[in-house]
Structure formats: C-alpha cells, structure tokens
Nucleic acid binder design. Structure first.
Lengths: 202, 202, 202, 202
DNA sequence: AATGAATGAGAGTTCATTCAT
DNA sequence: GATGAATGAACTCTCATTCAT
C-alpha cells in the first residue's frame, strides 16, 4: 500500500532525530527525557513511539548514522587527495577538523555516550570507531616506512592526534574569532609539526 | 565494598566520595543513582544524607576538590622547575600528562560533568578551570615573546594542546603496553614539537 | 494469520472475532491488546475500527452471540428429546457437556469475563445466563414433584451441577485420553447419580 | 540492627496483600492497577515498592501462600479424620467446601490468574495445585480398590468433583439463604452420591 | 476497507529526598 | 550515624481510539 501523499511521518522522524541530537549534546543522554524531546518536536510523548523503538534505539541510530557518515566523508576526502602520502595525511586531518567543527554535536555524542549504549549496541559502534582510527594509523605507518614521519608509537600517537583535533568540537562556535579555514590550517599544522621528521633529528 | 567494622563518619564520607567517583566515571552523573552508591558503600540510601547535602552537592565537592588539587600540583611542579621558561613549560606538560594518567577518573568527571552542575556551581568550577588554562597560556606567551615558540594563536593552541594531553585519560590503563614515563615523554615531545620555533621556519 | 487475498469486510470481521476469541481465552480480556489482535488478523490496529465499535463492544458481541447459541442449542436438544422428563434432563446434561467440550473457548470467556463488561452490557449477559440456568432448575423442580429426584435445594444444586459439568472446558483437549462420548456419559452419570432418588433413601 | 519499634512496615505489607486480594478478585490481575491498590492502602504508588518487588511478584506471593495454606489445612483435616477411608474422603470434601466458602477470594484468584503468571512462577504454582489434586485421586483409588466407590476414571472424576465443589466460591455470600454447615453437607453428599458404589450397580 | 500518524490518558516503576525512631 | 518506610514527582513506554488520506 503506497505511502499516503502528504503524510509527514518522515518529516516527524527527522525532526525527532534533530531535536534529540541537540538535547543529548546539551544535557547528555541520561539527563534528556522524552517529554522534553516530544515537546521540542511538537508532539505528545507517546507519539515518539510511532517513529522510534525506544530511547536506547534512538541513541544507537544517531550514533551509527553519524559514524557511517564520518567514515564515508573521510574516504571521499582520501580519494580526492590522490596517491601521495602526505597529501592523503593532510586530507585526513583537514577533513577531521572541518567535520568536527561542522557536526560537533553528533561528534560530541559519539565520543561521550558510548557508555549509555547497551553492550551489543556499544560493540557495533566501537567497531566503526576502530575502523576510523585504522585509517589514520595506516597513514602513519606508511609515513614512517617512507622515512617521512617520526612516530615513536603509532597507536598512542594516533590517539593523541585525534584527541587534539577532536577537542575543537568542545569549544568551537561558528561566530567565533577565527574562521573555519584558519582553524583547520592551524590544527593540521600543529598536528603535522608534531610528527614530521626533520634533518637535525636522528 | 563491605561495611568496615568500627567505621566512623569520616571514613564513611571518604568511602562515599571514592565510590561516587568510580560510579560517575563509569556511568555518568545523571545515570548514577544513589541506591547503587549506597549499596557500594554498604549503607542504606537514606544514610547518605548524614554525609552529603544532596547528589548535586556531592558532585560539586568532588569537582572542586579535584580542580584545587590539580592547581596545587601544577604550581608545585612549576616551582620545582626553576625559572627557565622551557623547563617550566616542560614541567607543566609533564605534570599534566602524569596527573591525567594517575587520576583519570576525577579528570574525566571534571571534563564531562560540567553540564550536570547547577549554574552557580558551574561558574565556580569554570573559574578554576580557567585559572589552570591561564598557567599554560602565560607560558606560551612568554615563549613567543622570547622567540622560542611559534604559536599562531595562543588561546586556540592552548586548547588544542590540552585536549591532546587530556585525551590520554580516556584510554590509559595502568597495565598497558607502555609505562608512565614513556607515555609522558612521548606526549610532551609531541606537544612541544608542534610549537617549537625552528630555523628554517619563517 | 496471513492476509487473505481478495478478503472482504465480512471475512475480516469473522477473522477478528475468531482471533479475539482465542486471545481473550488465552490471556483474558484486560490483558489482550488490540495491537496483537490486529497483528493476528493481519491488519493495522486502526483498521479494526472499520469492523468493531470498541474493544468493549467486541467482547459484548462475542458473549451475546455465544449465549444465544448455547440457548438455541439447548432448546433444540430438549425439543429432540421428547416429553419424558428424564429424557429431557439427560438431554440437557448431555448437550451441556458436549457443547462445553466443543466450544470451550467461548464458554471460558462467558464465564470469566463478566466482570470486564460495562454494567449495562453485563446485565444483558446475566439475563441470558439466568435463562439458561432456569432451563435446568425447571427440570429439577419437575423431577422432584414427580418423585424421581432427591434435591435438597434446587438453586444450589443446579449451580453445583453446572459448575461440575462446566469444569470440563478448563482441561479438555481434543487429543486427550478419553473420547467425547465417553466424557459425556461419564459426566452425565456422575451428575445424575448425585440427585437420583433411590428406594433405600428416605 | 533491630527493627524500630512502632515501625509499621509489616502492617503496610499485610494491608497491601489484603487490598490486592480484594482488587484482583473483583477486577482481575491485569485490570487491577497499582495506583488503585496504593490508594486503598493509603500510600503513594511508589511506596508499594518498599514492600513488593513487582506487580507480578505480588501475585505470585499471594498465590503461593494461598496454595501452601490450602495444602496445610487439607493435611490437618485428613490427620484429624483418622485412618478410615470414608472418613478421610468425607474430611477432604468437607474441608474443601468450607475452605472455598471462607477464602473464596484467594481461591478464585488461584483458579483464574494462572495465566497471568510468568512461566517460571506458573510452573511452581501448578506443582502445588497438582499436589493438592493428588490428595483426592489417592483417596479415590483407595476407595475403588476397597470396593467402596464406583469411579469409571479417577483423574476425570477428580477434576469433575473439584470443579463442582469449587464452584461454590463463585456465588457464595456469607449472608445468603443457607448457612455454611448446610452448604457443606449438601455439597459433600452430592459429590459422594455420584461415586458411592451401590448394591444394584454392577 | 485500510493505512500510518497522532492523541491523551494511564500503566508499572524509579528516583532523590525526608524523617521518626 | 544508621535505618526503613514514606513521599511526590518524574520516568519510559503502552494503550484504545481517532482521523485525514
């Protein structure tokens, strides 16, 4: 049976996800309640269940979709960068910082609400996250092998770099003092300077 | 945690704070409930109120004490480092990393539960946090003035450095592959490399 | 229950009644929900209302139709039995047992869900039930007057006999150890033995 | 720590059980809600949980305690009846009828709310019920072996007798036309007459 | 005749907190 | 200082029902 024309189910579902993203970002998942969410969407609390299975399932869906988008965006950026290693590394870092400025709410949720997921759901998100980190560690290993980078420990360094570049989403505001491009350049340089091999280094 | 025979008030209070630190770290403040906290301490929920004023007050006390300890430890490390700027900067970074490994639960709470504080309490913790950040921005400014550092934007760079070094407390485990000293050295070097002024740079 | 292609309204209505009978029998009226009922019929919950007025009306219709069928079947059996009192009494009991084996779901509902009916509906079902009981009490009174039966209290005895013979529908299974005819004979004898007047009795 | 004098926890718990018995008897378990139950006890709904684990656990406890009391009362009646078989059979029936008049609410619940129990709980109540039925079937078998009773099928006859005698609790009222003793005598005679072996019977 | 989305009431349950003992 | 029972508000979620399409 065809979907009734003018039905606004899809619109409501999107509104729920958008409102939930904002509320979880601001208050945390446990502190968000479905009454507030429903009110923000403009429906009754019970009506949420026409669109979601449970509060937990809503969180999982948001996180999963976000991680999938992050991975897809990253791969697109790497593809666009061409084959040269340093281009690819720079593309990864640029994309990471830009994405973290533009979608800082989803990022913050993905980083802080892992503990709110039930074990099975958590395992699936952790797998996506690992796949993302693997993109960076692979680039670092290549760089070391090519003699371009100085990285004492690939795994720890990758964590540290991601932590630094991810931190931006906890304070960035679109109307801040510095523009996006400046912030991207500044952060990518800061990160690269930390690992670039130099002549006077061993 | 079994009930200690002959325990007195101070011991119970300390046990409550220790148990709360662990529970908040693992579950988040909003998701922690006082039933579980009381059970872990070995008392009834109502008895908590002989030692704390409220769940909110307990969180605030934990965060305030932690920030005070962080500031005191930092200042002690700076005093011990002597007057040389680079020694002081290195001392700040070393201390930061070490402290974040050793007290990662308190750190994680201080970083993630600001939003759970009531406005007045939040303002007081934010003030302490700003004081801590000011220690680093002051050092960076000195370094730039002395021509030792290359820092395009002091505030943003300080944030990025702190984010990187703070990230360690989200994955560090005492029984991990690398020892504390290695991790401190690795992180401090990574951070310093990012900002050291070099000859061939403009 | 799969959706029948080309099903029309009457067929859906019958499917709803059949599914509701089973669900109410198994779970009770209050515990049955219209979601499950709709799912068993293969339609959406809202579509039920094209066929029923309300959950309450559905229950009432089922009970009313059942009581009417019971009465009609009883009267047919009495008519077929002829004029002799003992034949008629035996016919009543035989029919009662047989009917309670064959339609135990409807019977169980009629016996246990009176309390779920709204007062007005309940009164109407109670009236039908009283009419049914009156068939038996009339026979008992005739038997006593004719000196054939020994019945200390007609009303109480009628209740007790009906309770005994009705009990079968709470455990009878078509694939059980004993066949229908055996069970009918056994129960009718058990009931009649309890009230038959004997020579050596006062 | 000793129970505080004057604490009325036990009294509240008993009041909850008593009120729940009445409400479940009148409305059925699924239709009873905890708000009404709490109101009848004179406490807030949430306060119920100081005394019960869940609605389901409350039902199970009521049914289990009732079945245990029925079994204990039956065994006491059998012990008091002495060794003669017919005395014991009569004692069983007398006790059954009397108990079903005096505690008809618990009985009705035990008979009609089995389906409301979760599988594990149901299995435990069914086991108690089987133990009770076994008391009667054992007596019937003895009676048949001794040539005192005529019972075509022990299991079916036992069910039918219990159904008849249990029926009383669905209509008995303490202020009714007949007294307890009369009703006990009437029912026991009705049941025994159905199975007593007579000379002129094969 | 059927759908999917909405409603509004209410369900069982949990929670931080209070307080007489 | 600790207890057990109580509170009252709030929670997530379910329900019968309605209705435009």
């Amino acid at each position: 049976m065809a979907r009734t024309t003018g039905s606004n189910g899809a619109r409501t579902h999107a509104a729920i996800r958008a409102a939930a993203t904002g509320l979880i970002y601001r208050q945390g998942f446990a502190a968000m309640n479905l009454r507030d969410l429903a009110a923000e969407v403009g429906i009754q609390p019970g009506s949420l269940y026409n669109h979601i299975d449970s509060k937990q399932a809503l969180l999982f869906d948001l996180m999963q979709d976000h991680m999938a988008a992050l991975l897809a965006g990253t791969d697109a950026a790497l593809d666009a960068a061409g084959p040269a290693l340093m281009d690819r590394l720079r593309a990864f870092l640029d994309h990471h910082v830009l994405y973290h400025m533009e979608r800082r709410e989803e990022i913050a949720i993905a980083n802080s609400e892992l503990r709110a997921l039930e074990p099975e759901n958590r395992a699936r998100i952790v797998a996506l996250r690992s796949a993302y980190e693997a993109r960076l560690t692979a680039l670092l290993r290549e760089g070391v092998a090519a003699g371009l980078l100085s990285v004492p420990d690939v795994a720890v360094t990758a964590y540290a770099m991601l932590a630094m570049l991810t931190g931006i989403c906890s304070w960035y505001r679109p109307d801040g003092r510095l523009g996006k491009e400046e912030l991207v350049a500044l952060h990518t340089a800061l990160a690269l300077n930390g690992i670039l091999r130099r002549q006077h280094q061993a």
